[in-house]
Computed example of a mutant assay.
Amino acid sequence: MPYVLDTADLPPRERVEAVHTAMMYASAPCHVIHEDPDGDVHARMEVWDFGNANIFTHRSSGIRLLRTARLARQDAMPVVALSVQRRSPGRIEQQRRRAVVPVGELLAVDLSGPYDYSWSGDGAAGCLQVGFDQLGLPVDVVRRATVEVRASSFYRMVTDHIAHLARDPGRIVADPAVGAVAAASVDLVRALLASAGRGGQHARQVLAETLLTRVRVFVRQHLADPDLTPQRIAAAHNVSLRHLYKVCAEAGLSLEQWIISERLQGARHELLLPESRHRSVAAIARRWGFRDATHFTRRFKARYGMLPNQWRRSSADARS
């Protein structure tokens, strides 16, 4: 079960202190300064255990989190937070860096060091928090990378992945495969920071170790693109096609067949959605990267033993 704070359940006079106490648990000790402490202070926070990391979601009225050098000296466990702004822009100051982070973009914060983070108005963010000890990188590489994450070629991939985690963490952590997803998420963070932090030999090792994870995430983020080919995947990861196939083969993965399988699973799920009931099978097939509806239908029947329309009707009958 997650740790949850929802100030809607509290009298207004208790909300400021409750948010402060919750923040100490959810993130790092810091001064919590509300934009309008005498106004409509509201907040909802959730912290979900996620393998050796956690997912932290936070929506609230305007807030500032100020971690001073004195507070930083009291904390022994270094943690990096990778946070995607979900509503109003965020402002961050750390290591002589000042930045405004737009909605949908990523910021990385070394929670063990001093920082000043804030937003105005009704804001929200979704965050993946990972201990330095899980990253297999020197501390100086990690700390240098936190101010340079946008320099990494994996920036957009990791940003989209964390945004997806924060969208519905309850569903993700309830899935039987959550352990694999959590491990893959930490691998993506390792790759991002190694790339952005110019880790030299450490970076090369991490990038080699995380290639298959990055390929899997890249494919899942581009399943709807009919031009998703092994050649494009290899180019996106700066490796040869031969090396890509070698890495997949060592993991027992047939790349082309796995892509088709992922697309079929996505289409099969969408066929059941109430909001998709007016979409034709051909339209759903195209949405999942199949150019030819006949080819999709043949593949679907071979995989699931029935035609897409039969699957849709049988599932609808079961619900009625």
Rank of each mutant, 00 (worst) to 15 (best):
198 R>V: 13
198 R>H: 14
198 R>N: 15
198 R>T: 13
199 G>I: 00
199 G>T: 06
200 G>A: 03
200 G>W: 01
201 Q>D: 15
201 Q>C: 09
201 Q>G: 12
204 R>I: 05
204 R>T: 12
205 Q>V: 14
205 Q>K: 13
205 Q>D: 14
205 Q>A: 14
207 L>Q: 12
207 L>H: 10
207 L>C: 09
208 A>V: 03
208 A>D: 15
209 E>K: 01
210 T>H: 00
210 T>W: 01
211 L>Q: 10
212 L>K: 00
213 T>C: 05
213 T>E: 11
214 R>C: 07
214 R>L: 01
215 V>E: 06
215 V>D: 06
217 V>G: 07
218 F>Y: 05
220 R>K: 08
220 R>T: 11
220 R>V: 07
221 Q>T: 10
222 H>G: 04
223 L>M: 02
223 L>K: 02
224 A>R: 04
225 D>Y: 03
226 P>A: 07
226 P>G: 09
227 D>L: 04
228 L>D: 14
228 L>M: 06
229 T>L: 02
229 T>A: 03
231 Q>D: 13
232 R>S: 04
232 R>T: 07
232 R>N: 02
232 R>C: 00
233 I>H: 02
235 A>H: 01
235 A>R: 02
239 V>E: 08
243 H>T: 11
244 L>Q: 05
245 Y>D: 13
245 Y>M: 06
245 Y>V: 04
246 K>E: 15
246 K>T: 15
247 V>Y: 06
247 V>E: 11
248 C>R: 01
249 A>N: 12
250 E>G: 08
251 A>L: 03
252 G>D: 13
252 G>Q: 06
253 L>V: 09
253 L>P: 11
253 L>W: 08
253 L>C: 09
255 L>Q: 13
255 L>K: 10
255 L>I: 08
256 E>S: 13
256 E>L: 05
256 E>Y: 06
258 W>N: 12
258 W>D: 12
259 I>G: 12
259 I>N: 05
259 I>T: 10
260 I>W: 10
260 I>D: 13
261 S>E: 15
263 R>L: 01
264 L>E: 08
264 L>G: 09
264 L>I: 00
265 Q>L: 04
265 Q>C: 06
